[in-house]
């Protein structure tokens, strides 16, 4: 197998996900999405919420390393 298998897989995966993402946003304009809360009916709200939540989780997690991360043998010392 070629060495850059993973890279090319990653590239085509990114391409398809972006296409699907764009389609989902476009679809939002074609019908009225009913939600339990009116502000969630804004175009692309779940998409925005998903993106921001994900970035927030990862960045906060990364910052928490300062407080929560110890050496692998921490409990054996």
């Amino acid at each position: 197998m070629k060495k850059n298998d993973l890279k090319s897989m990653g590239k085509s995966f990114t391409k398809y996900i972006l296409i699907i993402g764009a389609l989902l946003i476009l679809l939002d304009f074609t019908f009225h999405r009913h939600e339990y809360f009116s502000f969630a009916e804004i175009y692309g709200f779940p998409a925005f919420f998903g993106f921001v939540s994900f970035v927030f989780i990862v960045m906060l997690g990364k910052w928490l390393r300062k407080f929560l991360m110890r050496k692998e043998d921490y409990y054996d010392q």
Partner: peptide
């Protein structure tokens, strides 16, 4: 659609 938007855009964030 709501669930797919959440998930797909979270993957895009990744």
């Amino acid at each position: 659609i709501s669930q797919l938007q959440l998930l797909v855009f979270a993957i895009i964030a990744f």
